[in-house]
Amino acid sequence: MNADEARATVLAVLATIAPEANLSELELDVEFRDQLDIDSMDFLNFIIGVHERTGIDIPEEDYPALETLAGCINYLVAARPAG
């Protein structure tokens, strides 16, 4: 997965979590939590959404790496789908 695909995946999942948000204004390095009114349930659903679209198994320890758009892109570009 390249960076553009990763970004598109992340934004698509976020759009289902925070449908009211203008994701085109999302900043790369600011936590979603501070930009999108996201709670832990939303974040879990985000992780599930990314998992379902990419097949990547994301352990809980890695959650902090996925708290910003830039972090997500880096993580997804580096990751390999399970199996």
Binding site: S40, M41, I47, I58
Partner: peptide, 16 residues
């Protein structure tokens, strides 16, 4: 934490 390590992503449990 230990429990969630055993669980696939969609089945994980929140502290709530």
């Amino acid at each position: 934490k230990a429990e969630n390590r055993k669980r696939p992503v969609p089945d994980r449990i929140l502290a709530s």
